[in-house]
Amino acid sequence: MIEIEHVRKAYRGRPALHDLSLHIPEGRIFGLLGPNGAGKTTLLRLIMGVLQPDAGRIRLFDGLAPGSPAATRQIGYMPQQLALYEGLTVRENVRFFGHMYGLDGAVLDARTTEVLERVELSERQESLSGTLSGGMMRRAMLASALVHQPRLLILDEPTAGVDPLLRLRFWDWFRRLASEGITLLVTTHHISEASRGDEVLFLREGSILEQGRPDELIRRYGAADLEAAFVQATRRAVPGDDASRTANGDPGGGDPPGGNPSTGQVPSGGVPA
């Protein structure tokens, strides 16, 4: 599904990703974890074709280059921000993004209805997006990312600001999507919820720290949970590095210039439970 070979990316000489190689198989939920500046957003943007790597090669869907029309049509994206048009209704928002992927007419109508049912927003489909709660807006964003039936769904902090119950509901939807053959690439600061994924990648300063099934990683580090495993993996990689530094300090890694000004979140990656 996604083949990444020896990819490097730097911003004005500042390395963001170092010689990163990765294989992400189809129909899996793949969690990307790491503190701010670890290179998560850079990796996502390289996969989506918004950025070009300085070196190395990325191939999607059996050989397509990122950014090519054939590849982008098969990708659904849900950004961190509440990226909806507040002056449009929920249904209009979903239909608008469907139009952007070339959908129209009865097909678009049917798919819009289907994805709104999937995220349980049918009853609020005629509400203006600006009047929705944060959780509802996230559900509407998921619906609009799914309307064109992507094979790869990229979710950047999809549950940020979402209450715990709804967060569980989101992961139920993710699991169902994966069972339908969709590959999900999820970044999150909630490390505990990443353990619900099939595979997890720990990123730090643009390099892979660890990769594997959540239960394997927990076992490997003899940790109580994935969060503790992440902290131990970080300490092992950088002797003397403590949890607070991982949690609060920007290690100088690789968000692009401008970073992610909208989030303002403190990474939870290094905070011990």
Binding site: M48, G49, V50, P69, T72, R73, I75, Y77, P79, Q80, Q81, L82, A83, L84, Y85, F97, M100, Y101, G102, S262
Partner: peptide
Amino acid sequence: RVRGTLERLLIAPL
């Protein structure tokens, strides 16, 4: 740009 919808549009085949 600020609310992120431009990014979503640019990630679509546009």
